Each structure stands twice: as C-alpha cells, then as structure tokens.
Amino acid sequence: MFKNILSLIIAAVLTLNAHYSLGDEDFPGRKYVCPPCKHVHSIFETKEYQEAGKCPVCGMNLIEKPFYEKDELPTIHAGSGSFQFNSKRSNATTPITVFYHKPITYSPNSKILLVIPGAGRNAWSYRDNWAALAEKYNALVVSPFYPEKDYSYSAYHLAGVVAGIEFKNYTVSKVDGRVNKYHVADTDVITGAITPNDTWLFQDFDEIFDLVVSVAHSNRQSYDIFGHSAGGQILHRFAILGSSTKVDRIIAANSGSYTLPHLESEYPLGIKGIEIESKSLKEIFSRKLTLLVGELDNAEEHRGTLLHTPALDKQGVGRLSRGRSFYAESMSVAKAMGGDFEWDFCMVEGVGHERKKMAVAAAKLLYGGELCTAKMGI
C-alpha cells in the first residue's frame, strides 16, 4: 500500500513542468528566466518572470533564476533548482551555476551523480533529462553550467589543458542550414602551450561533490559522473589526466574526438609533454571508465557537430568508429605495458546522437544493474 502511494506521489511530481521546483512556499522570491538563446545572452541580466512556464519570445521552457548568496552555503531543496559554486581553480573568475534535481525520496545515502553537458552547455536541459531517472534510482543529480562566453572550445571541450586552440582555413558542411561538420587540415590546427593543472576544468568536479555532500547532509564518499558529446570528451580526458580521488564510475557518451593515452602525439591527440598526476599509465587503465556510444552515431548522423582533420579521421569518420578505435588502441597500450585494463565499451542499439536516450542507457549501467555488452538496447 505504501509503495503504491509513494509511486502516485512520484508520478504527480514528474508531471509538473520540468523546471518547477518543489518547496516554492519556502522561497517566495523565486524568479524565472529564459535560458540563453538568440535573445538571451546572460541568465543573470535578462527579463524575470514570476512563474514557471514558457518564454513568450522564443517558447523555450523558463528555468529558475540562479541566486547567489555571498559567503553563505547554498540550499538544495526537493525537486529541481540551482545554486552557485565558487571554483578554487586559479583561473576561475566568476561563480559557476549548478543545476540540480533532488529526488523526493532523498536520504543521506542517496547516490550523487554529476552530469557534464555537451557543446550547447545547457546544463538545465541535461538536468531535466535526468529528473525522472533521479527519482527512479534515488540519485541527486547536479549539472554545472559553463557558458561559452567564458569557456571557449579549448577551455571546455579540451578542459583547459592547453591555453587555446585555433582552426585556420576551415570549411564546413551543413544539413538543413545548420553546420554539422568542420573540416580543417592538421597543419591548420594551432594549439597553445600546456597550462598548469590547477587551471584544468577537472579540478571542479570533486569540489562540487564536496559542496553537495555538505549542504545535502550526504553520507556518500564518492560520486559517479556522466558526460555526453562534448561532455564525453571532457570525461574521457578526465579519466586520463584528472587527479580525482573521489570519483567512482565515469561514463563518457558519444564523444566526438579522443585523446589517446600514449606519449607519441601532442595534446589533444595524445599526452606527449603533459605531466600526469597519476603514478603511471597503469593507474589510468584501472579507472572505471565506460565509453558509451550510440549504434547510429556513425558517419551518417547529422545531429551534433563533428570536427574532421586527417589525423582525427584515422580514428574514424563517425563517433561510433572513433570510440571503437580509441578503445582498441587504449587496450593495446595497456597490454603493451603489462597492466590491467578495466575500461568498458558499450554500444547502445538503435540510438544516435541523442542525449535523453543515452542518459537512460547510462542510468541502467550505473544504477539498474545492466551489464556492459557489445549491444545494449534501451
């Protein structure tokens, strides 16, 4: 009987507007704004609305306007919301907005998942994709927002490991008027110098977890992390170059390009010239990294944007082939070193470059007891 009542309550919560947050009576001053699109460049400097709903200008769902309480710990209430986080990275200049969903069945033992968005940086959308899954698996989901105006391609996709990257003389391919491919010669990719590791984006992940543990009164000692598309690029690089001691499982989904864990090529193709904080490459291969790729995220996939250079295309011309190539070459490097290889490769059957369906597949792997196989239907 209790389970049936609880199920009804959860169902009622999930039928609410995706951006509505439980506990509004405790926050009477809450405002709503349109997320960044063509007519909104900053969610902090735009028109405010008193209630959740759709933007009257573009029709996008309004999101809760983040608020920042200087020198005070944020509040995480049941349902969906946001808070701000001050990164300790030496190059961080502004607070980072973190969007979250806290399940109504939350307890101090609930799982904690960080979700890293794709190139659109739309952390609120990724949070919403995970809201029902957060309720189903009783996981507190948090997704940081790194605006493009503050975090360039090199600062985001490449995690700030290099000072910058420039693509010269490139050409583009379009589908329905939208750019879906960039083509550039290897000699026209100009990469900046390697930066100090205390400036790398990876540094934020443990800090966000520690803050969430504190304000949510969690007992968790570790967290899981999922990234899709550009977020997947960040996370497989996190597995290779990051120094986290608190991350448990890493799922990098539908990555567009890869950094190979060898010393033969310079970043971002390889890790030549980078001081790795791990004791050795053997330690990297023992981390719980899963490469999650859609079966249809191949050369025929038009969604997302893919970079093509002769060097990258040797890995494959689609995300699926590039993921397979990266996995096979990484396994070869690990075996040559005589170490263990704990990474997994999972292909999700019948799915392309789709963040919602990849989230479902990732949740099954993380919390649903699904095993990683060559083909995984959802």
Rank of each mutant, 00 (worst) to 15 (best):
G369P: 05
L16K: 12
G120F: 01
N17H: 15
I194Y: 06
R319Y: 02
V161M: 07
Y32W: 14
N169G: 09
G377W: 10
W130T: 05
P56Q: 06
D150E: 15
M1C: 10
P66S: 08
A131C: 03
T199K: 14
H183I: 05
P310M: 12
E25T: 12
F167G: 00
E72I: 05
F2W: 09
D297N: 09
G339L: 03
E277Q: 14
V172E: 14
V142G: 00
L241Q: 08
A361E: 04
C34P: 01
S82D: 08
S214A: 13
P108W: 09
T373C: 04
V175Y: 15
Q233E: 14
N109I: 00
T290I: 14
E275R: 12
V161D: 03
N129I: 07
S325Y: 15
L8G: 15
F99L: 10
M331Y: 05
Y153R: 03
L281N: 03
Y20M: 11
N180H: 14
P36W: 00
I271K: 06
V348C: 06
E283C: 08
P144K: 10
T93M: 11
D210M: 09
A52K: 05
S143L: 07
V57K: 15
W200I: 06
M358Y: 09
P103A: 11
F326V: 02
I96R: 01
P36T: 11
I240H: 01
F341I: 02
V351N: 01
I274V: 14
K88G: 10
I112F: 13
V142M: 12
L320Y: 07
N298H: 10
